[in-house]
Design a protein around this nucleic acid. Structure first.
Length: 1059
RNA sequence: GGGCGUUUAGCUCAGCUGGUUAGAGCACUGCCCUGAUAAGGCAGAGGUCUCUGGUUCGAGUCCAGAAACGCCCA
């Protein structure tokens, strides 16, 4: 903060606008120079603890996204809020460092296209490249987070690739093995052929895209065995449909629904001469157009069970395995919405198929290898890419008379979330953790957590209900090495820590740089049972293992349990809501295994960020905005404030237009600040002067201070509930009132003090409001708060803490809250607001004084009785609306008329169906008043059963809102017109001063002429004071800044120059 | 197919336990105020509160059903 310290002015001058990014760079330098964050940590060391745990951000990006900035704004907000209350914190940031996302990125950078390429390149070099990539990304994220204003212990960030993290995971995996939850499963998994690995459930989310595939209707001829003899004679075939033709060579069975009707149809296929018989779902048959078809009969699916058929590729070697198994089986999931009602089952190519195969004891044929190339045993298909052969298979089937129809089919199909290749399904060996025993424990632990917003808790329960066994293995390189070993004689065991590895090692330790492939694979260990040499399995772990262990690894569960106990569980975590199935889940898993409880107490989740038109941000798209761009163009605090005042549960529409709106709001605050500084400097205001006791300050000041205390109370209450939106909106509402009511109303007290004491009270009140306000929003807008603090407090008050972030968060002084005063002020503001509307209706400028304003509050209005037309508030109303007299009346005949309405809450139940009639009669004035009661439509209503309000009579300047009406007496006298003209002249002259670019304190000489002369003479003192004139003479000199024209229809000529 | 959320002005959203004229911000139009003002104020225009049915004297609000959109799971 370059600040020229003029000894005569207490504060550095502040312009009418400000460059937020520039301001922020100044503050970043200040914090860096003064090591402000270190000072904060030192100040709070040993204080009460507040435990926040940072979810690891994926260290695989070049620039922080604006969506990261959202979550990080909250993280920083609440940590700073707690810090200002003296809480000691860990301030540890984390990076997620392993897994497919890093590998895919590095493959791209190194131009590697397959696992074979990686192995040729060398796993060691590949791993080092991955680590380097992570470190580069972490450095960029750190830099951008600092730019966001986030305060963290950046030198102490945790990295999930660390040996400590890995060792902690091993510990838990060994525990799972001991509990019997760990198993090796042979099952069908979604599989990415390019990455050469299975993908887990979490990785499938959001990866379905619309695409078009070749789908085939294929004949499966019935074999003349058992019940099939008759059908076979008729040349009958089952008709089945598939969107994945490459799975047909792996067909083992056909499935039907036992309760559905199936049609036997005689048809002559296109181009065929002989009729044939097809078997397919009856509904499908009925809904399909046929050229020549004849329904022979219908049977239930169960009657088809056990029938045998010839598979489409039985002549290939694989047919020796599948052929004998071909038969029709029952499956309740078969439907007729898609396909033919008969489902082709290939247990080696799909999860459900696999389960059916297992149920039926059928062989599992896995047609493709890791890279989705056909294995041997498939004849002409051997070695071909599965996803490329759809047309070849169709041609082959057509040639052999097995293809009934080929149709392009558009459907939603999964792609790999990282490399965007189409997924296949493949059966292979994978490692799993069984959820059966854990599921109820996880659910129970999750119920005890405070989820914000609450529906996130239900989503977690839903996820846990549906969560299958967790596939934790990936056939990849840069990841957690699974510590699973098998010895030469077949014993299986799990290594539970790095120390255990070192103890069991027979050789290979000397080359173990870190617990990663390939070095870890070279360590040969002794089998605990038979001492035989054992090597590690090749698989690495799911990256959500890495993140889930964080509440233990970063808190040193294994090596410093006392430390862990001090900081576990996290009182608060905050992430995007997609983390339900990711980090929230994986942490919960580890924590329940190790401690039986959840690792967090309050979980705040925010929605996603979209662009201004509601479209998703695409990294490569034109609409993409990364955080560093937004920071330099709009400012971090503008972004942070936008986020703070947003509902966490609503998606954010982000763009420079909305940020412009936020900046405009900040300008209201800034202008109040600039106003204060300008006049405080002119008047040499010294914040160290003794306070004017609050009780002796004018009503306006006491009102503002009461509202300020209320604000402190409300903001603290909101932030204690992690409700930043309410806090931010309250703060904004306060600074709006401060600017547009307190300062605007009280301006003259600052530049034309009637008494020294009143001016001091005004300065002290505004100063307190501003300095309290900046501490209130310091956690949300740390830069702006700091900039204002440095100028308002640090530069002006000896001994003040060097940073706003080292001050205490404001505490409520309840004795300053004056409910009644705030009620009266609200009533006055309502009257003024309505009065302006009445002014507009009367088409009279506020500069023209009017004789009288009458206000009538309705019975039952909460502000009735708050104003009496006599006190300081009445003076405010008179001045604000420029009326000579202000009256508050219970009713005002002639200006407003009485309107009686039924009190629905009491009359509704009493009158029932008569209510609409009574209501109409009251509205039309068809009622009588007698002894305070009201007679209407044969009913007698008590005073408390009606609401009496007032409406303006036509022809008067009146305005009305719910509960209040005001009427303006618009009679103009020559007196009032003359006064109005004087004000008009003063206003014009002040405009001219502005045009002449005079300084606000310059004195001027005024010359004038024209019909305004009488008013000029009569209001000479008033005008001179308003425009700082030292002389006023009739007759122009032709010098200086001049103007002539009409003011309120009166001719005028004016001339001013600096005196 | 199951779960969760959403549907109110051109846009983004408030609307508490049912109640009298459904609000705010942005944008638009007009007027006003202004020696802190890249601000502010007043007003205008803009609504079949997604639809259907029900409960009730009275439904944006409660109940049932439907639809559309989004997310999670299958």
């Amino acid at each position: 903060m370059a600040r020229t310290q003029d000894e005569k002015t207490p504060f550095a001058a502040v312009g009418s606008s400000f460059d937020q990014p520039e301001l922020e760079h100044g503050i970043l330098e200040l914090w860096e120079r003064e090591r402000s964050f270190d000072a904060l940590r030192k100040k709070n060391a040993g204080g009460p603890r507040y435990s926040f745990i940072d979810g690891p951000i994926t260290a695989n990006i070049e620039a922080m996204g604006i969506h990261h900035a959202w979550g990080r704004s909250y993280k920083d907000l609440y940590q700073r809020y707690k810090a200002m209350q003296g809480f000691d914190q860990r301030w540890q940031n984390g990076f997620d460092c392993q897994g497919l996302w890093v590998e895919v990125q590095v493959e791209r950078e190194l131009d590697l296209n397959s696992k074979r390429d990686i192995e040729t390149y060398g796993i060691d070099r590949f791993s080092r490249a991955c680590r380097a990539r992570v470190d580069r990304s972490a450095a960029a994220i750190t830099k951008h987070s600092i730019r966001l204003g986030q305060w963290m212990d950046w030198d102490n960030s945790y990295y999930t690739y660390s040996d400590e993290n890995i060792s902690h995971i091993w510990h838990v995996l060994k525990l799972c093995q001991e509990k019997g939850w760990l198993y090796r499963g042979h099952r069908a998994m979604p599989w990415c052929a390019r990455c050469g690995t299975a993908l887990s459930e979490h990785e499938m989310t959001g990866s379905y895209k619309e695409m078009t595939h070749t789908s085939l209707y294929v004949r499966f001829p019935v074999l003349p065995e058992g019940k099939g003899a008759v059908l076979a004679k008729q040349r009958a075939s089952f008709l089945a449909w598939t969107t994945t033709p490459w799975t047909l060579p792996a067909n083992v069975m056909l499935a039907v629904h036992p309760d559905l009707d199936y049609a036997k149809v005689r048809v002559v296929a296109d181009g065929a001469t002989e009729p044939e018989v097809l078997i397919l779902g009856a509904k499908v048959f009925a809904q399909t157009k046929w050229h020549r078809a004849e329904l022979l009969g219908t049977v239930k699916g169960r009657e088809l069970l056990g029938l045998r058929y010839a598979g489409p590729f039985d002549e290939l070697p694989v047919g020796k395995t599948s052929g004998p198994a071909h038969r029709v089986i029952a499956w309740d999931e078969v439907g007729e919405e898609e396909g033919t009602g008969i489902v082709h089952i290939a247990p080696g190519c799909g999860a459900e198929d696999f389960a059916l195969g297992r149920r039926e004891g059928a062989p599992v044929i896995v047609p493709i290898d890791e890279n989705a190339h056909f294995a041997t045993g498939f004849g002409w298909l051997d070695g071909k890419e599965a996803r490329d052969v759809a047309h070849e298979i169709a041609d082959d089937l057509r040639r052999r008379g097995l293809l009934f129809r080929e149709v392009a089919y558009t459907h939603s199909y999964p792609i790999c979330w990282r490399c965007k290749e189409e997924i296949v399904f493949r059966v292979d060996d994978e490692w799993f953790i069984s959820m059966e025993e854990l599921r109820p424990r996880l659910k129970e632990a999750a119920v005890k957590v405070r989820w914000l917003p609450a529906f996130i808790g239900q989503r977690m329960q839903n996820w846990l209900d549906n969560m299958g066994d967790w596939n934790i293995s990936r056939k990849r390189y840069w990841g957690l090495p699974l510590p699973f070993y098998t010895c030469a004689t077949g014993h299986f065991f799990v290594i539970g820590s790095e120390r255990e590895l070192r103890e069991r090692a027979l050789r290979g330790l000397e080359r173990l740089e870190e617990l990663h492939r390939p070095w870890i694979d070279e360590v040969v260990v002794a089998c605990p049972e038979c001492k035989a040499e054992s090597t590690r399995v090749k698989e690495v772990g799911d990256c959500w293992l890495d993140a889930g262990i964080v509440p233990f690894s970063t808190l040193h569960w294994l090596d410093d349990r006392a430390y862990w106990e001090r900081w576990f569980p996290a009182e608060f975590i905050e992430e995007n809501l997609e983390q339900v199935r990711l980090w929230y889940y994986s942490q919960l898993f580890f924590s329940v295994v190790l401690t039986g409880r959840a690792p967090y107490e309050t979980v705040l989740s925010n929605e996603f960020v979209y662009d201004e038109s509601g479209e998703e941000f695409h990294k490569s798209g034109e609409n993409f905005i990364d955080f560093p761009q937004a920071a330099e163009r709009a400012g971090s605090d503008v972004v942070r404030w936008y986020y703070a005042r947003h509902d966490v549960a609503e998606k954010v529409l982000f763009g420079y237009q909305v940020l412009g709106g936020v900046k405009r709001r900040l300008l209201v605050l800034w202008n109040t600040y600039a106003f204060f500084v300008t006049y405080a400097n002119l008047d040499r205001f010294d914040p160290a002067q003794p306070d004017v006791p609050v009780a002796r300050r004018p009503l306006m000041d006491r009102w503002l201070l009461s509202a300020l205390e209320r604000l402190v109370r409300d903001v603290r209450a909101a932030l204690d509930q992690y409700d930043a939106q309410t806090a931010a909106l309250r703060i904004e509402a306060f600074w709006d009132d401060l600017s547009t009511w307190y300062v605007r109303r009280g301006r003259r007290r600052f530049w034309k003090a009637e008494s020294r004491g009143d001016s001091l009270a005004a300065y002290q009140t505004l100063y307190e409001a501003l300095t309290t306000l900046i501490r209130l929003f310091a956690p949300m807008m740390p830069f702006l708060a700091e900039a204002m603090y440095q100028n308002l407090v640090r530069g002006a008050v000896a001994g003040a803490p060097p940073s706003v972030h080292l001050t205490d968060y404001p505490r409520v002084r309840p004795e300053r809250i004056d409910d009644e005063l705030e009620r009266r002020m609200r009533a006055a503001i309502r009257v003024v607001s309505l009065g302006r509307a009445a002014r507009a209706a009367a088409k009279t400028k506020v500069r023209t004084p009017l004789p009288r304003l009458v206000a009538v509050f309705d019975e039952g209005d909460r502000d009735r009785g708050a104003l009496d037309g006599q006190d300081a508030l009445a003076a405010i109303v008179r001045e604000e609306l420029n009326v000579k007299d202000f009256e508050v009346r219970d009713r005002a005949e002639g200006l407003v008329r009485e309107v009686v309405k039924p009190e629905l809450k009491t009359l509704g139940p009493r009158l029932g169906k008569d209510l609409p009639r009574v209501r109409a009669a009251l509205a039309e004035g068809r009622y009588e008043r007698r002894d305070g009661r009201i007679l209407v439509e044969g009913h007698e209503l008590l005073p408390e059963e009606v609401l009496v309000s007032h409406e303006g009579e036509a022809g008067h300047a009146v305005a009305r809102e719910a509960g209040l009406a005001v009427a303006l007496d618009t009679t103009l006298t020559p007196e009032l017109e003359a006064e109005g003209l004087a004000r008009e002249i003063a206003h014009k002259l002040n405009d001219m001063r502005k045009d002449a670019r005079l300084d606000i304190a310059d004195r001027i000489a005024l010359r004038f002429d024209g019909e305004i002369a009488p008013a000029m003479e009569r209001y000479r003192d008033y005008i001179a004071e308003e425009i700082l004139a030292t002389s006023m003479t009739r007759g122009l000199a032709g010098r200086g800044h001049g103007w002539s024209g009409e003011l309120n229809g009166v001719s005028a000529a004016l001339e001013i120059e600096r005196a």
